[in-house]
């Protein structure tokens, strides 16, 4: 009884949040400022990316620095469909995501034999390998990359030029998909197995959990969703080249946003992105003149402060505040 009421309150919060995002484009703040639109789109994109990473890195406890590779494969999937084959982006988006999942499984099968930090280190190397590979692979544009020509704006081609509202609803769909999947996972067997593998691989095995399969499934799903985010990124920027997508910089964003927000928590990736992305975009806009990298300095400091103060990120800080309020309410009675 109590738990069902609690769950429905959580559902209400989630639906309310989606409704909030859905009506944002109707507000004058949004419609009058292309910069505000850009920031909102970035927040939803990066929180989706972080959530995709969170499946493997947060819930399953396998730190991957290789996610920019899957992000990049997704971006190249749609880029190739549009630029090279003159198609609409959709088959490319799907193909990119499927290929990313397959590459992820192929890469991580040997890497998962490595435990703990060694897995993380191995994924570092993979980013460099793919970056160099795509730099010299002329069929996919090499170092120059792929530049979109003009195509008819709208949902069919998934490009817009005048207004960003189309992109906003596009990224909102992506956000609902990624977060919706994680919400489902959290309540079902797979979610329990993910956390069990994180908390103790041998214990999980002693209870009949095939930990290798759980990790590979988490990796495949995580890479698939990261690739969808990459496809959106290419459509949004009308181009893709290797340093833009397959870089350690990009990989770090997946990791750091999630850590800042709260590893293995549902709202952590959203909170991390909601704090970091506006900070990044506004400092870049207003402080960019005094030399690049100010956003990165603040970014770094923030991570240090949060991780030292509360390793469970913003979600941990919120939990602590909620608990304090509850306790003082209990004391007042």
């Amino acid at each position: 009884m109590n738990t069902t009421r609690k769950m429905s309150r959580k559902d209400l919060f989630w639906l309310g949040l989606l409704a909030f995002f859905a009506v944002i484009p109707l507000t004058p703040w949004f419609s009058h400022s292309s910069f505000a639109q850009h920031v909102m789109i970035q927040v939803l994109l990066y929180s989706s990316m972080a959530q995709a990473w969170n499946i493997l890195g947060g819930y399953c406890g396998q730190t991957s620095f290789g996610h920019s590779v899957f992000f990049g494969i997704g971006a190249y999937g749609t880029g190739m469909a549009v630029v090279k084959f003159g198609l609409i982006p959709w088959p490319g988006i799907l193909a990119g995501a499927v290929i990313a999942a397959m590459v992820a499984v192929a890469i991580s099968y040997p890497c998962f034999k490595l435990k703990g930090h060694y897995f993380a280190i191995a994924t570092f190397a993979i980013v460099e390998i793919f970056n160099r590979l795509f730099m010299v692979w002329y069929w996919v544009g090499g170092a120059i990359g792929l530049d979109y020509g003009f195509t008819e704006p709208g949902w069919k081609n998934f490009v817009w030029y005048q207004s960003k509202v189309g992109y906003f609803y596009g990224v909102l769909l992506l956000f609902v998909l990624v977060f919706g999947i994680v919400r489902w996972i959290e309540k079902h067997r797979f979610g329990f197995y993910l956390r069990a593998v994180r908390e103790g691989q041998e214990t999980a095995e002693s209870l009949g959990v095939n930990s290798t399969r759980v990790k590979l499934s988490a990796m495949a799903l995580s890479a698939f969703l990261a690739a969808l985010c990459g496809a959106f990124f290419a459509q949004y920027n009308y181009r893709v080249d290797p340093p833009m997508v397959m870089s350690l910089d990009m990989s770090m964003k997946f990791v750091l946003i999630t850590i800042l927000g709260g590893l293995g928590t549902f709202y952590g990736p959203l909170l991390g992105a909601a704090l970091l992305i506006p900070l990044q975009e506004y400092t870049r806009a207003y402080l960019g003149g005094i030399g690049g990298g100010v956003d990165l300095i603040i970014f770094g400091l923030l991570i240090v402060v949060v991780v030292v103060y509360q390793p469970r990120g913003i979600m941990g800080i919120l939990d602590r505040i909620v608990n304090r309020i509850r306790r003082s309410e209990g004391g007042g009675k």
Partner: peptide, 8 residues
């Protein structure tokens, strides 16, 4: 057999 199979 691996541990998880024995458990199953």
């Amino acid at each position: 057999l691996p541990a998880y199979e024995v458990a199953r």
